[in-house]
Design a protein around this nucleic acid. Structure first.
Length: 490
RNA sequence: GGUCCCAUCGUCUAGCCCGGCCUAGGACACCAGGUUUUCAUCCUGGCGACAGGGGUUCAAAUCCCCUUGGGAUCACCA
């Protein structure tokens, strides 16, 4: 056949999609698209205890959310179906039998007790724990007899002499001494094959040409390369991606932050920001352009340019990037993205959204400057929903207001000036101009009025333009808040 | 501890493969100014790194070696 690129992402549905897994998927996908190859998805559900359909569905949804699509997979099918590993188990059994028959593997009857004792001893002597190969010497006929008699056994891979090298596109080629590679278990005593075995069987069957995965798999790779050879198959090329690290510089874990893609989705990170950020962890477009699209990734992605060193998950940069993307969204789209969070916070009911859409758009147009993620929205606008006489005043807002000695009188005069204009429906821009003229007539500076006013309207030290807030509140509530402030700021 | 991997600003990185253009570039964060009614956005500036030591070379962040430091992994889990 041809040497068309075929890459895969093979998640295990035993939990939510890890953010590092999402990046692995992204890089595999980008590589396939860049080389006009095939990207496929395979579900590694061979652990029936922990695998669930719910996780599987969530993982697929997560990938779709990011904008990744696959040419072959569990839901779309393909020429190498099935794409659920558990459904391929017969093939694995056949392959294991063939290996046994060819003498590339052997039955091991050692008990857990013996293995545990051996491990303990090796550990005490500061050696790597590895099987001592005792059962290698059992003649095949005897092994078959004992197996037939019902004796429990596992199938181990017979690691040959020599050394094993692999082509790694991110690290440069890596070599291992075979004597350091354990005679690992291919098939468990219950007859089920193990990961290192099935992953190779399936990759061979699915004609995978390149395997890009996390660095934690690097040490497994010689086992797999040796297996390819024993099966008479050509090993794929590899690329072991740098780990994503927590602030403790260890493999990203829940201890130092959110690890699931879904966590960021639920927190309202724009998905394009997530993709962009994931790209930046271990790869760079050109070293100067930080913000770029999936298209640009595909256009420029090169596995050889992926960094070797682990990348600390930089949440500050992620937040910044999220804000950049959020601000670029068309306002209608932004409303759709933010409204669910306002509903969830109890600020709005879903049924009143259509009638308030223009109002919400106006809020967002002003507030987006202060937001990074969609979930910031409710906290930004909560003051609008407070009772006018119970609006909480932040300490710094109140302090700013109270810096001005004439605040109560000025607020009163302003209220009297404002009320008729509001009643007449004067637009915000005109009110603002009028206010400036009014203030200069009385030889008052803007902050003298606006700081107390801001506190009166929002209870906060910072925020949008005061006249925007008046418009959002409406004449009645705005004036009520000023009225209350004259008492509360006295 | 064995094996394997890694090492440029606090963080993400460009440069390294194909030594000179590097008085090491960009971004986030931080600090200082400017803009703003305030906050934010935005603009300007600042701080800030080639882990250490040996080589090779006219010349090393770039090549080689050692040391140190960090990480991954050592399951009948994937």
């Amino acid at each position: 056949m041809t040497d068309t690129v075929r890459v895969r992402f093979a998640p295990s549905p035993t939990g939510r999609l890890h953010i590092g897994g999402a990046r692995t998927a992204l890089f595999n996908w980008a590589y396939a698209r860049r080389h006009r190859g095939t990207f496929l998805l395979r579900i590694e559900d061979t652990d029936p205890e922990r695998s669930t359909k719910e996780y599987e569905r969530a993982i697929l949804e997560g990938l779709r959310w990011l904008g990744l699509d696959w040419d072959e997979g569990p839901d779309v099918g393909g020429p190498y179906a099935p794409y659920h590993q558990a459904q391929r188990i017969e093939r694995h059994r056949v392959a294991a039998q063939a290996m046994l028959a060819r003498g590339e593997a052997y039955r091991c009857f050692c008990s857990h007790e013996r293995l545990d004792a051996m491990r303990a001893e090796q550990e005490a002597e500061h050696q790597a724990s590895a099987y001592d190969k005792r059962c290698r010497s059992i003649p095949q006929a005897e092994a078959e007899r004992r197996a037939a008699a019902g004796e429990s056994f596992v199938v181990r891979f017979k690691v040959p002499e020599g050394k094993t090298s692999l082509v790694d596109h991110v690290r440069g080629d890596v070599t291992f001494e075979n004597k350091e590679v354990d005679d690992w278990i291919m098939v468990r005593s219950d007859g089920n094959p193990t990961y290192n075995f099935v992953v190779v069987c399936d990759d061979v069957d699915m004609k995978i040409t390149h395997v890009f995965r996390g660095e934690e798999h690097l040490i497994n790779t010689p086992k797999q390369v040796l297996l390819y050879k024993a099966m008479g198959a050509k090993p794929p090329e590899f690329g072991h991606l740098p780990l994503m690290l927590g602030t403790d510089r260890k493999k990203l874990s829940k201890r130092t932050g959110d690890t699931a893609l879904q966590d960021y989705q639920e927190k309202g990170y724009p998905k394009d920001a997530v993709v962009n950020f994931l790209c930046l962890q271990g790869w760079a477009l050109n070293g100067t352009q930080e913000i770029f699209s999936l298209d640009e990734l595909v256009k420029h992605f090169d596995i050889n340019d992926v960094s070797k060193a682990g990348a600390v998950f930089d949440i500050d940069k992620f937040r910044w990037l999220a804000g950049e993307y959020l601000r670029k969204e068309p306002i209608d789209v932004l409303v759709d993205h933010c409204v669910p969070f306002a509903i969830q916070a109890g600020l709005l009911r879903a049924d009143e959204v259509p009638s308030k859409r223009a109002w919400l758009a106006s809020l967002l147009a002003a507030e987006k400057e202060r937001m990074h993620v969609y979930s910031n929205f409710p906290a930004r606008i909560a003051y609008l929903f407070a009772k006018d006489d119970e609006l909480p005043y932040d300490a710094d807002a109140e302090a700013n207001a109270k810096k001005h000695a004439g605040r109560v009188a000025l607020l009163g005069d302003f209220q009297a000036w404002l009320a008729p204009k509001l009643a007449a429906g004067e637009p915000s821009a005109a009110l603002k101009d009028g206010m400036k003229a009014w203030l200069s007539e009385r030889k008052a500076k803007m902050p003298e009025l606006l700081q107390p006013l801001r506190c009166a309207l929002s209870g906060r030290a910072g925020g949008p333009d005061c006249f925007d807030m008046i418009a959002w509140l409406g004449p009645e509530r705005a004036l009520a808040r000023i009225e209350h402030a004259r008492r509360r700021l006295a």
